[in-house]
Amino acid sequence: MFIPSLVNGITMGSIYALMALGLSLVYGILRILDVANAGAYTLGAYVGVTVFRLTGSWWIALVAGAAVAASLGFILQRFFYVPILASGPIIPLIASIGVFTALEEAYRLIFGPYIIEFPARVPLPDIHVAGVPVRGVQLLIILVAVVVLVGTWYVLGHTRMGLAWRATAQDAEVAQAMGIDARRVTGWNFLLGYALAAVAGVLVSINYDAVYPTMGDMPAYKMLAIIVLGGLGNPLGTIAASLLIGLVETFVAAYVGFLLPRDSIAFVALIIILLVRPQGIFTRGAVAK
């Protein structure tokens, strides 16, 4: 039971990391919790499955899902979030829940309330790790997550764009005085965050062979728990927290599953963390502002 749980845990953690990273980047710059980000996860899955039926190609589906979701993210921030930012953090949070609900209803109206199959075949073979079968799509999820996460780590830490992001997250006003256009950084942030969520959505729906309107419900709220665990607005901490939650969930479900349902684990961890270490597990020093 150990090896399958490990593989499943890493797969889930990879998915969480893709989704939570976008959310964490957005929080870092705008200090808002964007629940509607999970709407991009579902949108990616629907666009992906539609394109897959037209083209038969999983990777065109992946790219199309990411592109459409990125456009949605850009439009939402420019015409929706940025205009209401001045009203404090609570109003954008409530508004984002409204957007998320509206998106889910839109998917239901357009695509119907039923589960749609996503029977894509990925080019990776099913393999055996220590005698345990690992499906090709799980390998693909882990591979995509590793590439994306290493890429993000590199961009944030080693490029001027990353430097601009870190500076804007820390003090947007000073960053502007240094010639950095905070609006542009914000725009890129949402493009990237929504694209990442869509990639996760496409991969998950291939993995479970299912797309449905409410598939974003669980991720929407679980991601909030994960980015708090990772230290709000701390991208690398968020990745670590995602893997941790993915693994803990899977192991608890496998070994002591009778104790509590799997989807509650992230929230139990959230409550413990808020009591014991409110700045997040992976943030050094004092509570972030």
Binding site: R160, M161, A164, M178, G179, I180, R184, W188
Partner: peptide, 8 residues
Amino acid sequence: GRHYLANP
């Protein structure tokens, strides 16, 4: 680096 930060 501001001149080319405009284009990430």
